[in-house]
Amino acid sequence: MTKFQEKAQILDRQELAAGVFRLTLHAPLIAGSAHPGQFVMVRVGELFDPLLRRPFSIHQVAAGGDLQLLFKVVGRGTGCLARMEPGREVDLLGPLGRGFRLQREDPVCLVGGGMGIAPLYFLGKRLLQHARLPEFDPVLLGAVSQQELALLADDFFGLGYDVRTATDDGSLGHHGFVTDLLDAVLPRVSKVYVCGPYPMMRIAAAKCLAAGVACEVSLETHMACGLGACLGCTVQAQEGYAHVCIQGPVFEATEVAWQ
């Protein structure tokens, strides 16, 4: 798949909750060829500090060549990006990596935790392009609190999915881990797509394995190039090391050597 380097103008910046941002960028080359689960490398400034690009999964693409990123400010890179005003341009590389394999017919389940929800929305939209009944597809979403989760959950409701929520503080939906919700739905789905914090994905992967249900996970690591050149974004896989930027970020859960 062709990769592009593209100057993208920031069209809109929404602060969904404290420190959680959704940026809309105009990047027609990347948006036009992106597949759910793929990511972009974003240069957050022109200077040398921070030096490296930051990887962000693609939250959604829209007709006309727009692309959205969803992120929480966790460090200097995300801090720089969050301060960029609409009208500014950022340099993107993408679309990168191997995305989700689309299940066209049988019911599937999407499980997202925190900012791991980002690529699942793109996936949820793309799955609908293949005639399916989203009310039979459970979407399990977890976050710290209602404040962080409510708007994102509404997006999936809007697509017609069977949305169930969990929060750490009990302010929305189930009080506890989002993976607690998985047991009830596993018997009636053929595949589970997971993105979120590592411990959450490990639990989801174990539950799917026990139930004999296929599971794909989207992994996150520190990355320098995103292109498979530096070999810095290594994870332990069943068969030696794997590189998240080119062999992933989406892996079959059984490919990963869970720590």
């Binding site: 500090d49 921070p50 030096l51 320098a224 530096c230 070999l231 810095g232 974004c233 290594t234």
Partner: peptide
């Protein structure tokens, strides 16, 4: 095979790597 992860970390105006000659 190279070194175990993490293999890279960003530093001020630079980066450290220990790829391990993969």
């Amino acid at each position: 095979p190279g070194n175990p992860p993490p293999r890279i970390v960003e530093t001020a105006c630079g980066m450290l790597n220990a790829i391990g000659l993969e």
